[in-house]
Amino acid sequence: MTTLSSHSDTRSGTIYGVGLGPGSQDLMSVRADRLIRGATHVAFFRKKGRRGHARTIVEGMLVPDAVELPMEYPVTTEIPFDDPRYNAWLGSFYEHQVAQLAEIAGAGHDVAVLCEGDPFFYGSFMHLYTRLQGKVPVEVVPGITGMSAAWTATGRPITWGDDVLTVLTATQPEAMLTERIAHTDALVVMKIGRHLDKLRRALKSADREEEAWLIEYASMEQQRVVPLAEVGKRVPYFSILVIHGNGRRP
């Protein structure tokens, strides 16, 4: 006997964490480009009152009737990371976004979540990914990281031969930064912002200040590559510091 399909027969949509790369549309993967241009629902993180960098990157790529789902952080740098309220507010925020995305996917719609760089590299999407497991299908589309664009912008290889590359965030304690900077061949430092002075002191203590380069807005129109010694007291949010390795080579 033939019966009419019920709501429960609706195919669940998929949540795609789409890596956009460092900022230039022509540095996206073919798959990322295809998913974004065909997406009926597009979600992206942003600070309240801002358009959002991820959304800016895909300008001109979305279909005219795409449903846009901005996800506005309840807090960014207004309070310290170690303030108990920080994790509580963000945890609640991510739970709310997961519920919304799961509901949309449950109705049979795919959702492209726009992710700067690579979704699994210091990104917000990973907090959605872990919470979405077992609820709806989730797929991740990798992207070129901002650090890759940054060291490429310097025109020099970041590692040679057996060089060890260390990736740090400037949010770490100064003593830890100093130790790790002193004991690596090549270095990338992200999340600099208001931690610039601390990072400078750590580099000086490790006797590597003169080796450091700062790249602002890697791969974007306003890209700037300068030795750290020429940098002022403040740097843009999209800034990455690199020290090149000088290891074994033929």
Rank of each mutant, 00 (worst) to 15 (best):
V138Q: 07
S124I: 11
K135R: 14
P119A: 13
L114F: 12
G117R: 12
V111L: 01
Y122R: 06
G117P: 14
K135S: 14
C115E: 06
L132Y: 08
C115W: 07
L128V: 08
Y122V: 02
G134T: 01
V138T: 12
L128W: 11
L114V: 13
A105W: 00
L132W: 12
H127P: 06
D118R: 14
P119Y: 12
F120G: 15
Y122Q: 02
Q133D: 12
A107Q: 03
P119W: 08
A112Q: 05
G134A: 08
V113Y: 03
H127W: 11
G134K: 02
D110F: 00
V113H: 02
Y129W: 15
G134M: 02
V111W: 01
S124R: 06
G134D: 02
K135H: 09
P119T: 11
V111P: 03
A112E: 04
C115G: 04
Q133M: 10
G117L: 09
F125A: 08
H127M: 03
H109L: 03
F121K: 13
P119S: 10
P119D: 09
M126T: 13
P119R: 12
C115M: 08
M126V: 15
F121N: 12
S124L: 07
G108I: 02
H127F: 15
M126G: 03
E139A: 14
